[in-house]
Write a protein that binds this DNA or RNA. Structure first.
Lengths: 244, 244
DNA sequence: GTGGTCCAATGGTCCAACCAATTTCTGCAC
DNA sequence: GTGCAGAAATTGGTTGGACCATTGGACCAC
């Protein structure tokens, strides 16, 4: 027997219902991220549910980063919502350590290579021009600020993800990017971090412009490899210095 | 001045405090996934907070997939927890349509290939044995039920993700698996779906057992390609049949 | 053993009140 | 009128208590 032919029935799902209604409200009012949504008390009254139920529902959304609550002020929309959202709560055991960072790098390696290849296949001329523009900005920042170009670097990669024709690449890697930021804030001894990866940005671009998916994939892999090397060197240095 | 040296004081963070205490409890009691944690009422009493506060905290964890609540039964641990977890809630706007499905397939292609390669590098003998076991189960189910082996198929892939040594692979693909399920529920006309991908499961396994990362990657890519083909055929068929 | 009934435990919901942070309004000094 | 301190209203955060719905086990009749 197919187990899927007899799904469990849902008798109670109050908070889910609240969120569904809220999606409808946001769409009807055309609320944009940053705008305030109704008071908890008002929602409770309008939806004919307890304020507690409203709060549990909003707690869910807050945990997903869709909404932000400010005591005394209100609840604010933080991202676009729709009725067919797919939630992927990723939990990394062991936050700031080296292992977690390398694990995210492995994910990024897989996605970055695929995105570069797809980009080489699909990018429009406008996309390619945009990537070239970001590359120029990055290279200039790199030279004037002597290697500190993480922001421009990030925008270059984002342009590639966008041109891949698949928004999931950008969303997934963007979620992980915050992890990297935390790490950067607490520098780990490698002063010239990112220097080694610099030349590969241009080679990736050239492969994309030449419509060479395999080449783009290969260059992207090389780029990630240099970053991983930097990380490993940093970790080794850190380990050494802590052995006082 | 380093802003981090002067963190804002926390006058209210009751639910966070509850979760922190809960992490301590789980560690002290050495609770494993699947075990039941204390009643909401007991937690409220022990931690000297309201039951509502406990509930909001647990709602957070439930949203992160760390815990599962069953009315009338209790609250159960679903994953390992630690004090330094990092959460990356990722919500995708995608829907049920064919485009979304193909986009998730592109992500899966990237991750599946990388996971297979890493697995071939790192899997222990026990891991490989486990994968072989899942493969046998899957192949038997395939033969006896004539191709309907999606559940066993999924477990085979999960075993590979686990043996990759990087839990993120399993988490990300597991989240996307739910999207596929949504799709399977509304079948799309391809009766022999998955048949074509069947032989590649064994070739992937053989590459892993032979410690051949490049081979494993190539076979994984072939497998995904057949699935994508099936999807495209299904979509074409659907399109045709709806042109009445 | 099978099926039914009861009952205690547990999560889900509700209510009414109060606390704490924020925003807005008010009124006074100038 | 302007500016600013303080009051008042608004809003999310917390509390305690109550009741409902589901679960799972104990017990019983057959």
């Amino acid at each position: 027997m197919d187990q899927n032919s007899l799904p469990p029935i849902q008798t109670t799902a109050r908070d889910d219902a609240v969120l569904k209604a809220l999606v409808g409200f946001v769409r009807a009012e055309a609320l944009q991220p940053g705008e305030r949504l109704p008071t908890e008390r008002i929602l409770a009254e309008r939806l004919k549910v307890s304020r507690n139920t409203v709060r549990e529902a909003l707690t869910r959304w807050e945990g997903l980063g869709l909404v932000e609550r400010r005591q005394g002020s209100g609840t604010y929309l933080k991202a676009a919502v729709s009725h067919d959202m797919l939630h992927m709560p990723l939990t990394l055991a062991g936050g700031n350590d080296f292992t977690s960072l390398m694990q995210t790098m492995e994910i990024r390696r897989a996605l970055e290579a695929e995105a570069a290849a797809l980009c080489a296949e699909r990018a429009s001329q406008a996309d390619i021009a945009e990537i070239a523009r970001k590359l120029d900005i990055m290279e200039q920042a790199f030279r004037t600020r002597d290697g500190m170009s993480s922001e421009e670097d990030w925008e270059f990669h984002q342009a590639i993800y966008r041109a891949s024709g698949n928004p999931l690449f950008e969303q997934i890697i963007a979620a992980m990017y915050e992890l990297f930021h935390r790490f950067w804030e607490h520098p780990l001894g490698v002063r010239d971090f990112g220097h080694a990866s610099f030349p590969y940005h241009r080679t990736i671009y050239e492969c994309i412009a030449a419509r060479d998916p395999q080449g783009a994939r290969a260059e992207a892999l090389k780029l990630i490899a240099t970053v991983e090397d930097d990380l490993k060197r940093g970790a080794a240095k850190l380990k050494l210095s802590s052995q006082t």
